[in-house]
Every structure is written in structure tokens, then in C-alpha cells.
Nucleic acid binder design. Sequence first.
DNA 1: TCCATTGTTGACCAAATGGTCAGGATCACG
DNA 2: CGTGATCCTGACCATTTGGTCAACAATGGA
Lengths: 205, 205
Amino acid sequence: MADQPDAPLTRIQQKNRDLILEGALTAFSLHGFRGATVDQIAEAAGLSKPNVLYYFATKDDIHKTLLTTLLDMWLAPMIRIDPNGEPLDEVLAYVSAKLDMSQRFPRESRLFAYEILQGAPHLSEILGGSLRGLVDTAAAILQGWMDQGRLAPVDPHHLIFSIWALTQHYADFDVQVRAVLGPGHDPFIEARPFIGDLYRKVLAV
Amino acid sequence: MADQPDAPLTRIQQKNRDLILEGALTAFSLHGFRGATVDQIAEAAGLSKPNVLYYFATKDDIHKTLLTTLLDMWLAPMIRIDPNGEPLDEVLAYVSAKLDMSQRFPRESRLFAYEILQGAPHLSEILGGSLRGLVDTAAAILQGWMDQGRLAPVDPHHLIFSIWALTQHYADFDVQVRAVLGPGHDPFIEARPFIGDLYRKVLAV
DNA sequence: TCCATTGTTGACCAAATGGTCAGGATCACG
DNA sequence: CGTGATCCTGACCATTTGGTCAACAATGGA
């Protein structure tokens, strides 16, 4: 158990922890926390099960590490909203960035989806804490623009929820989207102009 | 094993099967298929575990029965779109009905969410079969209205996806929505005008 | 080269869990 | 009220699975 705080990781530790987290991301995003087994994670990581448990004390530990590690990356686009930018451009850039994340990081999207569906046992404090703060900040910026008449007035919190819902849908419900569209369609290519158009109309003054 | 086809169910069979499905809906929607145990289902149903397995051969059987039974109800609102109705009213009625379902049947919404996240192992044929047919029909109606200039032209399939995403988000991600909004907010009361307003703008000619 | 630290694993364990079964309780109906 | 069908359960089983451990291998600095 290499759990001393601040102990700088050796090269091997760094590499194997990365392998494990990578394998676990695949396993958890495919089967959920309960559905993924340590054996699956070990195999995906190319390590033996005891070795996985050598680097992380418990399966839960791996899961928690993944979630908290990836949360920052997941929320990064929202922080980049610039209060001094052109309102509509800023929102559209955020929307586009979120759709990019769904396209490039579907495993991460599903990981979070499982966690929230489950009732967010590991993230509940964060949801009501720092995430809420982040959203409130972004909502305040949006509200400011609306007050200035530079965006159509809509509820900023629900505007943000709608962006999350619309973009993450294409990662989380990928199978359904593809099944319904049938072969010969690229969901993301089609979704991009649709969603962009949608927010242009919603937010046009 | 009471599995003869067409055998009419006795009163007791009817009641206990209903109890089991009800308990299983709660358990599966809370923990997912893998996460829910037969014991949990039995307890939620107020029956013993062997008795549960007396009415359904396997846990998988319960799950499959639930999914296929509830799918019709879940898709019903889409079928009610009336080609002869007023286009915008019809769409808004569908949106409102879907939001009602999220509010009144969040367990069902989560059940399906888990299934799709999992890769839809039980629903894959249906997704690409009858569901796809249903969506294509609805999309054709929408496209017709757009061609007549009675709705703004947007991709009808992705319009439908957006309605699913926006409405189901409030059921599936309930914890997140509530955590971010904080106490003293009713997500659904707020979401209703927001989403209605959104589609009015998107579809206005 | 030496050796303490770090890394790795086969074998194993206890608990959880899906499912079985023999036998007893209850019900429905002639 | 008798009896066959239906209903119910305690006890049990096999498998899966998270996690442990003793022993062995590799590493790297002095």
C-alpha cells in the first residue's frame, strides 16, 4: 500500500497507476461500478489482480480517484466562459466544447452518468459545493448579459442544464441514437449544426 | 415455473407478479441491473427470495419483463402526435407529456437510462426496429410540417433527440439538478416554461 | 556487488449472490 | 370435505468476487 501523502511516485508507480485508471475507466464506463470487476480492470490494464490492489487499496478507491481526477477536466470548459467576450460567441463556444467532450471522451461522460444515476454517492458534496459555485458563477455571467440585453432572457441555470443534457445525450445514449438514425449517419456531425442553430435561436435578442 | 404461454394468471399470480415488478422497478432504477439483488427485490416486494424465483425464472427474466412491459408506456406520447393538428401545439404537447413522464415516472426513466448506458443488451433489436420506425414516422410528420412552412426547418431526428435529452435529464440527473439549484427550487416547475419557451423559439417560422 | 526498498503473483479466504429443492401450507373446486 | 393443483419457504449449493498474504523477483542507490 503506497499511501503516504506527498510521497512522489516512482516511474513504475506512475505508469501502473495510469494503466489501472485507464483500464478502470473502460470497465466502469461499460458496466457501471457494481458491474465492473477488479479482474476486468486488471485485464484491461494488463496487470494481475493482486497487483491492481497493490496500487489501490480497494475497488472503491479506484472509482473515487477516477471521478475526482476527471471532474476538473469535465468542468473545465465552463470555467473558460469569458465575461468580457461576445455573449453569443461565448455560449456557442461552450456548447461546442461540451459536444467535443462527448465525442472525444464518451467513457468519461458515461462514468459520470452512472455516478449521478446512482445518486452520486461519491460526488454529492462536490455537486452541492464547488460545482454549484461554478454554475452559479456562470449563471451570473449569463444573467448579466441578459440584463444588458445582449442575450434573450431565459433562466440561466436551466440554460446550462439544457446544454449538459443535449451534449451529453450523444455520449451517454450513443447506442440509442445510432440505432434510431441507422447506418450511414454520424451523430456528432449532424448534432453540431442542429445544437448550434438551436442556441442561436434561443438566445437571439 | 408458471411459464405456459396463454395460461391465464390466477388472482394470486397477478398480484404477486405485480408486486415483484414494482419492487424490481425500484431496485433496478436505484442500483442498475447488476447492482440490484434478488434479495432487495424480494424485500421491496414483501416476498421471500425463493418465492420471487417461483414467479420469474431468473433475475434477468424480471428485468426483461420490466423493460418490454414499460417500453410501450414510455413511447406512448410520441404516437399521439397528430398529423392533422396544429404543428407547434402538437410538438409542445409532446414535450409537455415527456416532461410529465420524467416527473411522474422517474424510476422508469432511470431504468431505461441504465439499459441504454449498458449498451441496451435487451433492447437492441427494438431500438433499431420498432423504435426506429416510430421515430421515422414522427420525423416524417415533422418534416412535412417544415416543408409546408408551418415549422422552422431543423433536423427532425435531432429535434426528437433533443426533446428526449432535455426532458429525461430532469429524471435521470435529478440529484445533480437539485444539488446545483439548491433547496427551495422545484426543478420541474422551473423547467416547464424554460423548455416550452425554448421550443417555441426553435420552431417559430 | 550488495541489499533494502519496491514490485509482483499464485494460492487462498470469506462474503455475497443467483438459483435449487424437498417438503409443507393453502387454495379452489367437485 | 377431500384432493389435486398452486403457493411458499428454510436450508442448501455453486459461483463470483473483493480482498489478503507469504513468498519470490526486480530495482536502484551506495
